[in-house]
Structure formats: structure tokens, C-alpha cells
Design a protein around this nucleic acid. Structure first.
Lengths: 223, 223
DNA sequence: GTACATTGGTGTACAGACAACACCAACGAA
DNA sequence: TTCGTTGGTGTTGTCTGTACACCAATGTAC
């Protein structure tokens, strides 16, 4: 197994989440090098000298998926001395929320990359199970008192799609009228002139209000 | 000015908070080396190879103040490439909550150390003003939905002292009866048989319930 | 030892927020 | 044109939060 110097190294690891097939899914890559060769892992990599942590996370994401303009948020820094068998590696973990559909092309080093439903995860490398669990807890918690949920939706969406997204993340059904009233009172979305036709009556499209960046703090969205 | 290698270095910086003189105060040390020589700064230091981040924070605290058994919580990781003029230094910031009275003896390198009220801070070294502001925001926010406030009090305390602590941190007056009802419903403290005499009627002493470690999550303490 | 100042301790009523709940509307397909 | 499917809308009871005032127990000054 390769061994790093005793000097601590810094990586960023990114828990990238998406809503697909009525499931919350995360992107994992299959490691093709030791340690944990063949094991699935959260994408990440070493921080370069001149880049900020967040830029490192963005760079990793771009290398991994080609996606830009994602919502990124620092999660936690994991620094157990034994978390990486190669030596001292400190990982700054980020959460990335992206909207489907999103093609992921495996990284330059030909690693396999795919989305996994959070309910059916394979065994993971390093302490990545812990990181992922923490990311899920944070997302569920945060969606209740902020508007991050919109980051998982495409630019325009219907109210039913929005509600479905919340239900998937919180893993519980929500009342349609109460949901719409709260979203409306929170004033974080605005209606468009367009509608979308589907199986039944066409639904009005909405978009996230860019000027509503301030997180809903005075009152939790779903108490 | 000394220059570090291009390889990133990791420090932990600890925002240590205490309640004294009806004020929320933080511990700062006066730097006696470049850069920012003579400037006040949050105590911290480099992470050693074999220690976890939290242990590094505990070690720094002990070296700085001799205190053990403090409440420690990871705050955020600051990694701007230019935040330290010596080179690439990534700082994992922690919050420490301690209870007065607490003597701080200046560190082994004879740096001056003293408590500063958060309302009257001097100019700080590096990006420490940003770190401190973030720590204050987190503390105020967290105290509303968890029981971290108790960490700033001595082992036994009266309900008035507890209320005063919350008022200082939140910087707003609280209603006595409502405060007591909520604390009571949260079931995070237990009465002792002792009382404490003072200017008026003696007050019952309470202590934090060790088995109430779980943070009050279902309902915010002060909505 | 009485009066007074000081802090400790307690309950209720009103207002606002939350949760539960059912029906009509608009479209496509058969 | 009927039916299936999804979109869209208000009201009521319950609970939670907030505002608010008085008596109790001690120490001190006279």
C-alpha cells in the first residue's frame, strides 16, 4: 500500500445528492487504487496549494461529473488519525445538491461512477459511511428551516414536484394544502406564466426566487 | 517573516467562551511572533501527527489555560489560500464553552492572555474576526434549540442564573415564568436539596442532568 | 422586632400557528 | 361524453407561545 508522508494531507470529499426515480440518491465512485480498491467511495481528492477548500470541491465535482453552478455547503471536517491507512489525511466534507437529470461521466482515471439510492448503499471505503450519514442528517434537518430543498429541483418546477421532493427527503407524506400555504407564506418561489401538461390538469410552473437567498429563519418551514 | 512549505499545514483554533461580569467573553492571546506580532488572536496551534482534531483542540486549551473537561464543538474549517501570509494554513475552528471562574495562565511562550467581552474586541490577527463572528452566530443560534447553554454555567446554579446566562447570550430579556416553564418541560435540569442565600429569598440550586445529553430537538427551547 | 428592600417562585387568558380535512377544475384518453 | 388523473383551493379545532402580577422568604436598617 502506498504510504503518505507523516505530514498531514488535506482532501475534500463531496457528498453529491440528487433526486431521481422518487429517491434521494448520492454519487459514489468505485476506487481503482489501494487502499479499499474496488470499494465504493464518496468522490474527493487532495486540495491543491492555491485553491480554496470550496474551489477544490468544485474542481472535484467538475472532474467527476462536468457539472458547474452547484449548491455547495461545508459539512464537517473529519480528522481521526486512523481514518486513512496510508497516513494522516484530514478530510473536509462538503454537501453538493444538484438537480436531475445529470449525466455523470466517470473520472479521467476511468473509475466507475454511479448514483446510489441512500436507502441501498454498498459498503463504503474509509469513514465514508459516517460522512454520508452525517450529510443525510444535515440535509433533513436543514430542509426544515431553510430553502435548500430547491437546489435539488430543476430551474422550473410544479408545486407537486416540490412537495414530492420534500416528501422524499423527509421520508414522510405532507398535506398538500398545508404545504402550499407554507411555501406561499415563505415567499421563496414565484409563479411563471407557463404551465406543464401531464396526465391530468396542467400544472403551473414556478421558480425559486433568486432574491430569496436569505434562509427562512424566523419560522421553520415544517415545525 | 517565516515561510512555511507549500504543503498545507493544519491548525486548530479555539474560540473559548465564558460568562463573566454579566458579559459573554472570549479568550484571546497576544501574538509575540510574526506575522501579526502584537496583535490579539484566538488561541490555536498546529495539529500533531498522531492526535485527532478534537484532541489537538483540547491540548491547545490545556496549554493555554490548564482547563480540562470543557465542552468542545467543531465550528467550521477555514481554508482561504491567503488567510495566513506564511503560506497555506488550513484552520479547523472549534468552540469551547467553559464556566467561570477560570484562571488562565499565559502559555509557555509567555504570551499575554486575557478575556475580552465580545462587545469590545480589539483588532484580530489573520481572519480571526470572521471566525469569532461565526462562532457567536452559531452559539446564539444553537442555544435556542439545544441545551449547550448549561456548559457556560458552574455545576450547580439557580434558575435566575440560568436565565441570566441565556439573556446575555441572546442579548434580550426573557420572561421569567415562560423561561421556567420551558426549562422545566425540556427536563434538562434537576433540583438539588441545597439552596443558596443571597440578597433576598434563598434560591434552589439545580444541576444539568447528565442523562439529558440528547439535544432538545423536537421543540426549540426559545422559538 | 418591625418595616422594608430584594430576590425567588408561581398560573391564567388571549392570540397566533399548526394540523386535519373534501371538493371542484382542467386536461387527455378511451 | 365519460372517465381517469393530477391541479388547485378554505375552514375549523387544537395546541403552542406570549403577555402579564402577585405572594414568599430571607437579610438589613431602623
Amino acid at each position: 500500500m502506498p504510504r503518505l508522508s507523516d505530514h498531514p494531507s488535506i482532501t475534500v470529499d463531496v457528498v453529491m445528492m440528487i433526486l431521481q426515480n422518487n429517491q434521494l440518491q448520492v454519487l459514489l465512485i468505485k476506487r481503482d487504487a489501494a487502499p479499499f480498491r474496488g470499494r465504493w467511495a464518496i468522490p474527493g481528492g487532495f486540495v491543491q496549494t492555491a485553491e480554496s477548500l470550496e474551489n477544490a470541491a468544485r474542481r472535484e465535482l467538475k472532474e467527476e461529473t462536468g457539472v458547474k453552478d452547484v449548491y455547495l455547503e461545508q459539512l464537517y471536517t473529519f480528522g481521526d488519525p486512523k481514518r486513512d491507512p496510508r497516513g494522516r489525511v484530514i478530510s473536509v466534507a462538503y454537501i453538493a445538491l444538484v438537480s436531475a437529470p445529470l449525466a455523470v461521466h466517470a473520472g479521467t482515471d476511468a473509475r466507475e461512477a454511479r448514483w446510489w439510492p441512500v436507502t441501498e448503499l454498498p459498503p463504503l471505503a474509509f469513514d465514508h459511511e459516517q460522512i454520508l450519514e452525517y450529510a443525510l442528517t444535515r440535509l433533513r434537518y436543514k430542509i426544515e428551516y431553510s430553502s435548500v430543498g430547491f437546489r435539488l429541483l430543476p430551474e422550473t418546477f410544479t408545486l407537486s414536484e416540490l412537495q414530492r421532493a420534500y416528501e422524499i427527503i423527509l421520508n414522510e407524506p405532507l398535506d398538500k394544502r398545508n404545504f402550499r400555504r407554507r411555501i406561499s407564506e415563505a415567499a421563496v418561489i414565484e409563479p411563471l406564466d407557463e404551465t406543464r401538461s401531464g396526465d391530468g390538469r396542467p400544472a403551473r410552473l414556478y421558480r425559486f426566487r433568486a432574491d430569496a437567498v436569505a434562509e427562512v429563519k424566523a419560522r421553520r418551514l415544517f415545525p
